[in-house]
């Protein structure tokens, strides 16, 4: 998957920038010309793109963790191969996006340090538990589906290196999504127990998917630098609506009930009620939905989600476990792996 990043960070206006250069830059953006690394760009644009690419890269790396834990427990050899390939893809995406960020002025070591110490963030959706194979199916179907929708628009952005990388990543995301769709179809064609497990996983991930696109847009979103400079090109709310229009009818056809759920601190559902708003409005062609709990969204962003500490611990664990390999490769040292 990937946590396609919708930067929420404020971008300061272009104080102190050369007005002629700024005007030329903005004209290029208006004309649909891509910005390449050697081009002049306002500092706020560079910082904004760096934040976006770094956040995205962090999300790819952390996003591989919940799925990686399921490789050994995949239900068949083919699923195990696919999941292994997917996890490898995600880490590869992180690697490519860190490179885009490096070109914008931050070293990879700095980015890895900031991730491990919690200074920089990754996508909210990875702070939720994945207790069953059904959750893995939901991550691939709903979260990767949402990621493709978001990233397809990001590939129409203005920064050339990010666009090129996004096009390549999207090709692989298509496999992740299709694999997830196949898993969901298989489970929902299965036994009563499998269907129950999948519905429970759906309940855990539906609202997380709605939050995936970020909070509601500010009224002047198009005038703010992120959209004005085509770092992102579509509003969070319109992406969310497109997602619901695609996935709500698919879920209902598959036999899912779309519920509004309350969750405990561990991310597990404690109560459900059917979402009565989730019906097709024939006038607009849009499916309705109940807004996710935005208090929960901001609580998780601030580091108080069900799995925030766990994910960072695991990332630190991986960093520690890989140190002897890095030493051996980078410094030619002969060290041994830590005792199991």
């Amino acid at each position: 998957m990937s946590g396609a990043a919708n930067p929420v960070q404020p971008l300061c206006p272009c104080e102190g920038e050369d007005p002629d250069k700024l005007a030329e830059f903005e004209q290029r953006i208006t004309d649909g010309v891509h910005i390449e690394p050697g081009d002049w760009m306002p500092e706020a644009y560079r910082m904004g793109m760096l934040g976006m690419a770094e956040h995205h890269a962090n999300s790819e790396i952390i996003g591989a963790l919940p799925e990686g834990e399921w490789i050994t427990r995949a239900p068949s050899l083919r699923r195990k191969l696919a999941l292994t390939a997917k996890v490898q893809d995600e880490v590869g995406h992180g690697q490519m996006l860190y490179r885009v960020s490096q070109e914008l002025g931050k070293s990879r070591d700095d980015m890895l340090r900031d991730l491990i110490t919690g200074k920089t963030k990754y996508h909210n959706c990875f702070n939720y538990p994945a207790p069953t194979w059904g959750d893995i199916a939901m991550i691939q179907w709903l979260i990767d589906g949402a990621a493709i929708m978001n990233q397809k628009t990001l590939a129409d952005g203005a920064y050339g290196p990010y666009v090129r990388t996004m096009n390549r990543i999207n090709m692989e995301e298509a496999f992740h999504f299709k694999s997830g769709e196949d898993m969901v179809l298989t489970l929902m064609s299965g036994t009563r127990k499998q269907k129950k497990m999948t519905q429970e996983a759906f309940d855990r991930w539906w609202s997380v998917s709605l939050m995936f696109f970020g909070p509601h847009d500010k009224p002047d979103a198009e005038q703010r630098p992120a959209m004005r400079w085509r770092m992102k090109i579509e509003r969070n709310d319109s992406l969310r609506q497109r997602f619901v229009n695609r996935f709500a009818p698919a879920a209902k056809d598959l036999g899912f009930t779309i519920n509004v759920c309350e969750k405990d601190d561990r991310g597990f559902v404690t109560s459900v009620r059917e979402d009565e708003q989730c019906v097709l409005d024939t006038d607009t062609g849009n499916w309705g939905f109940t807004d996710p709990d935005w208090n929960e969204f901001f609580r998780v962003i601030r580091g108080n989600g069900p799995c925030n500490a766990h994910r960072l611990d695991l990332r630190r664990f991986s960093y520690e476990q890989g140190r002897w390999v890095r030493n051996a490769i980078a410094k030619g040292g002969t060290t041994t792996p830590p005792a199991a």
């Binding site: 070591d109 890895l112 340090r113 110490t117 611990d313 630190r316 664990f317 960093y319 520690e320 140190r323």
Partner: peptide, 15 residues
Amino acid sequence: RQQTYEFADELPTGK
């Protein structure tokens, strides 16, 4: 895996 690791000297150094 649930252990919390402290990284005093082992963090990437920004080299």
